[in-house]
Amino acid sequence: MVEAYMLIQTEVGRAEVVAKQVAALPGVVSAEYVTGPYDVVVRVASATEDDLAASVVPSVQQIAGITRTLTCPIADAD
Rank of each mutant, 00 (worst) to 15 (best):
S30C: 04
S30L: 07
A31P: 00
A31E: 05
A31F: 05
A31D: 03
E32Y: 14
E32W: 10
E32N: 08
Y33A: 04
V34Q: 06
V34W: 09
T35I: 14
T35N: 09
T35W: 12
T35A: 14
G36C: 12
G36T: 13
G36R: 14
P37L: 15
P37D: 15
P37W: 15
Y38V: 15
Y38S: 04
D39H: 06
D39N: 08
V40A: 00
V40Q: 01
V41E: 03
V42C: 03
V42F: 03
R43E: 08
R43H: 03
V44M: 02
V44F: 00
A45N: 06
A45W: 00
S46K: 03
A47P: 09
A47T: 14
T48R: 13
T48H: 13
T48C: 09
E49V: 13
E49Q: 12
E49D: 11
D50H: 11
D51W: 10
D51V: 07
D51Q: 14
L52F: 10
A53Q: 09
A53F: 07
A54I: 04
A54F: 10
A54G: 12
S55Y: 10
S55G: 09
S55F: 07
V57T: 08
S59F: 01
V60F: 02
Q61V: 02
Q61K: 12
Q61E: 11
Q62P: 00
I63H: 01
A64Q: 12
A64Y: 09
A64G: 00
G65E: 06
I66D: 01
T67K: 11
R68Y: 11
R68K: 14
T69M: 07
L70W: 11
T71D: 08
C72N: 08
C72S: 12
C72G: 01
C72T: 08
C72W: 06
C72M: 13
I74H: 03
A75Q: 08
A75F: 10
A75D: 05
A75R: 11
D76E: 12
D76F: 07
D76L: 06
